[in-house]
Design a binder for these strands. Structure first.
Length: 672
DNA sequence: ACTCGACCTG
DNA sequence: CAGGTCGAGT
């Protein structure tokens, strides 16, 4: 197998997709569980190249929770590719470290289900699904449960973070993990659909499952095509000695899987077909609307040519098209880098890669951290960036776009939604990372490279933002975002544009019923401008908060606390100045390198990623002087000696920049 | 060091 | 109810 890192990355990504399906179908359930439970150092295993030296192998809870690490997939796919004959038998234990093989043998002795599946697997070429017709009947029930379980797991991985990628502290990381687990626990109980989701809700549970299985089937179609494309793109140029055979193997495998699974799905869905059809037609009516907004010519063509002989295949075609396009572009872009002289590669990099990635700061995986920082190193540059948001730059119409596709997908179709999201996430990652040059540096060994490990896991992280967007109308279609990418000259520009669109398209997308630490930070920064905000002012600047009496009081209390700290510091430094022998209050001017400023800045602007306005320095200097004068004059004997000072200071509020009104960007930027 | 609840005052 | 103060909790 080639040692080209890019190709490994692609292998990882695509294999992950396939495995998602395989795992979802329950085929590798046991292997997955064993992997999760038994491997202490998952990166230590490399069936192809033997023990890996020098791997970093940071523990990653999320990964272990859901998937084995990328190296695992890489191993699998390299194994796949190294099989010269499609019919060659596969030892199902080859996936496992030797320790696990023992465990597997041990378990298979008592676990009848597993041994059955394992032996079934053994008879199959590569990853083909059992030919036994019993497979469907016996495991259908369990499979449903697993699929649902996995889907749930996938759809609620909101904050998964790849360690080391985003510079988050471990503590934060762990906390997120904790939250995630709690969410997971909660979500185990099927919850009611929110009002947003009702339009397509259907009466029966069985119909839901039917739909899910139908979607699963379609997914397989799509994935098959994707793999085909991918295989064509990179297997040929890289001159695998047995590329055609390997490719054939993969295809065959997928076909087998598809056929088998599809058959099961057909069986299971047939009984409830009428209900399903009803839903399908409703579903279908929506898609043209969704597609209609901003179709490229190519897409329009595709739409025309594929307009329904059956709704089924059309939906499938759309998805195929989207995915294939993305994969193709991703492959091309990377191959262009890797093999610049490779003939016949269409130059599609400049075309819009359909990237459904929220670039709201942290979630923007590859470049996000730097970008969000770049937005707010100094107040001035921050202002510049956000002005772009409010001004609707050319080529950036204000989108009241209704992506019904996305809303649809969440309605009782967790599978397709998840796959969409994850697929998009993966593909976006591919694109973004390739743009970002992430793949330019070769990993020392397969599975031991931070990059190669991180990339496949980022999609999970992306989910939260995408899902959040799905909750609200106005979401952008991937192709639309893609066209943004084509407008953007650089990746940074692109991410800024994404942030801008995010703000434009989801003005109310972040409405919260509770104040968050992000709000606290924002409030603290606002304190630089206003010490005595009115509740109406607060309402105007916390647009993403659903104001209640409680929230209002809380915000007011915050500012009260800010003042408390502020005045305490002022008094302290005034007294100190007096002790230091200062006589003229005018000597007390707070500059940016004075101790008092440092203290205040630490308090209100932790991280120092916001340039404190000069106005605040002025006000602070005045306050200090007032305190100094009062203390010097002995007024502090009066219990309410501070009151006059407060009165003075309360008149010195200045206008808060409008940039504080745009909630999400600011917050994400501050939180970063 | 920082936050926040309890309490007081106007 | 807003604003301020105090003191406990982390």
């Amino acid at each position: 197998m080639s040692h080209d890192p890019e190709l490994y990355s692609y292998c990882n990504l695509i294999t992950q997709i396939v495995f998602t399906i395989l795992l979802g179908s329950g085929i590798f359930k046991e292997e997955k569980d064993m992997y999760r439970n038994n491997v202490s150092d998952p990166y230590n295993y490399n069936p192809i190249s033997g023990p890996v030296d020098g791997q970093k192998g940071e523990p990653c809870i999320e990964r272990d929770n859901f998937f084995p690490p990328a190296s695992y997939y890489a191993s699998v796919i390299s194994h796949l590719l190294s099989q010269p004959e499609a019919s060659r038998e596969l030892d199902p234990t080859f996936l496992l470290p030797s320790s696990q093989k023992k465990e597997l043998l041990f378990q298979s002795g008592r676990n009848s289900t597993f041994s059955k599946e394992a032996s079934t697997l053994r008879q199959l070429p590569l990853y083909g699904v059992s030919n036994s017709s019993q497979f469907c009947n016996e495991h259908l029930q369990a499979k449903r449960a697993r699929v649902e379980n996995i889907i749930q797991g996938m759809s609620i991985m909101p904050n998964s973070v790849v360690p080391g990628t985003f510079g988050e502290s471990d503590e934060h990381h762990i906390e997120k993990e904790k939250n995630y687990r709690e969410n997971k626990r909660k979500q185990k109980v099927p919850h009611q659909q929110s009002p947003h989701e009702t339009p397509l809700a259907r009466p029966g549970r069985s119909s839901i499952q039917a739909d899910e299985y139908l979607q699963l089937k379609k997914q397989l179609h799509v994935l098959h095509h994707q793999l085909k494309q991918l295989g064509k793109k990179f297997l040929q140029p890289c001159e695998f000695s047995d590329s055609s055979q390997s490719q054939g193997s993969m295809e065959k495998t997928i076909y087998l899987l598809q056929e088998k699974l599809g058959q099961c799905l057909d069986d299971s869905t047939q009984a409830i077909v009428s209900d399903h059809d009803q839903h399908q037609s409703r579903l279908w009516r929506i898609i043209p609307k969704m597609e209609g907004t901003k179709l490229s010519e190519k897409e329009a063509e595709m739409m025309d040519s594929s307009i329904p002989t059956s709704e089924d295949s059309t939906l499938s075609e759309i998805l195929k098209h989207e995915l294939i396009q993305v994969v193709t572009q991703a492959v091309d872009s990377v191959l262009k880098k890797v093999l610049p002289n490779s003939p016949g590669l269409p130059s599609q990099l400049c075309n819009a890669p359909p990237v459904t990635v929220s670039s709201t700061g942290k979630e923007f995986s590859c470049a996000g951290e730097k970008i969000s920082r770049r937005w707010l190193p100094k107040f001035s540059s921050y202002k510049g960036a956000t002005s772009r948001i409010t001004e609707n730059p050319p080529g950036f119409p204000s989108y009241p776009i209704s992506s019904k596709m996305e809303r649809k997908s969440q309605v009782n179709c967790p599978l397709i939604m998840t796959s969409e999201v994850q697929g998009n996430g993966i593909l976006s990652q591919m694109l973004l990372c390739s743009q970002n040059g992430h793949w330019g540096s070769p990993p020392p060994r397969m599975g031991s490279s931070p990059e190669s490990l991180e990339v496949p896991w980022q999609p999970i992280k992306l989910k939260s933002s995408v899902m959040r967007h799905q909750r609200y109308p106005g979401s952008l279609k991937s192709t639309e975002i893609g066209s943004l990418a084509s407008l953007a000259a650089s990746k940074e520009e692109f991410s800024e544009m994404c942030a801008a669109v995010d703000e434009i398209a989801f003005p109310s997308a972040h409405i919260q019923e509770a104040l968050t630490p992000g709000h606290l930070r924002k409030a603290k920064l606002m304190f630089f401008f206003t010490r005595y905000p009115t509740s109406s002012l607060l309402k105007a600047y916390f647009l993403d908060v659903q104001f209640t009496r409680c929230i209002t009081s809380q915000l007011i209390k915050w500012f009260s606390n800010f003042r408390e700290f502020y005045y305490i510091q002022m008094e302290k430094f005034a007294r100190q100045a007096l002790l230091d022998g200062v006589t003229d209050p005018d000597d007390l001017v707070i500059s940016r390198d004075s101790e008092l400023f440092r203290t205040l800045n630490t308090h209100y602007n932790k991280g120092n990623d916001f340039e404190v306005p000069d106005g605040f320095l002025h006000v602070a200097s005045l306050t200090l002087q007032e305190f100094f004068g009062a203390i010097k004059g002995g007024k502090d004997l009066d219990p309410s000696w501070k009151k006059p000072i407060y009165k003075i200071i309360s008149k010195l509020d200045s206008k808060i920049p409008d940039t504080f009104k745009s909630s999400s960007c600011l917050q994400e930027a501050i939180q970063a």
